[in-house]
Design a binder for these strands. Structure first.
Lengths: 106, 106
DNA sequence: GACATAGTTTCGAAGTTATGCAATTATATA
DNA sequence: TATATAATTGCATAACTTCGAAACTATGTC
């Protein structure tokens, strides 16, 4: 019974990094090569490659080679859905905080 | 623009621990005291308390005191929704793996 | 084969997280 | 005030994560 919590925590762990979150959002638009992701994020190729390897290890992304390039894409659209919901949680938290701040300013 | 990825990763980070995931699922049923959570999880009070403090710091749970007890509850039902979706991602991954295993056994 | 480009892997330093133990705080009750 | 129960905090330590630099692998072109 406890095993499921561990596995589910691992899914979160994969998404629990700002670079990997940025990669997920970048791939939302469609498949991209490592170099494209590197340029978009403004980070080293080594770093992006390592994060892609984590994402692939948890089966959140797939990859396919085409000549010199390797194209990465989101493995399951539900990952995007989960991210969307977490962003909603976040925005509701932020707007809640703003309401409180507004009250204090009165 | 990058800040949002950091914040969103932080939301994930909060959920990226099996004990905290177990607490979230335990609180899904309704508010509970620390002692109840301790008994349910079979861990030390110190440990549960520290994880509750992380969850509270990210505003995922609320607490209210009633006499000697402190009752914890989920702050936003969307947190449960996000967890549900992540579990779906997980179960789809597991069943996908099983399909592949079945093919190999032929 | 030599060279260029795309991507991965290895390694070590720096930072972060999880845990139990012991000490502390808060409330209730006699 | 003394004592019991509920919960939190501080601290040490072991385990894990992140990152860049350099070395390596894979593919394409001359």
């Amino acid at each position: 019974m406890k095993e499921i919590f561990k596995l589910q925590a691992d899914v979160c762990k994969t998404m629990a990094n700002p670079v990997r979150m940025e990669i997920i959002y970048a791939l939302k638009e469609g498949e991209k090569t490592v170099t494209e992701l590197v340029e978009e994020a403004g980070l080293t190729k080594s770093n992006i490659s390592q994060h892609l390897s984590v994402l692939k290890g948890s089966e959140m992304v797939r990859s396919r080679r085409e000549g010199q390039n390797i194209y990465y894409s989101i493995a399951n659209p539900k990952i995007i859905e989960a991210c969307r919901l977490m962003r909603e949680v976040l925005t509701e938290q932020l707007s809640e905080r703003q309401k409180i701040m507004a009250k204090i300013e009165d």
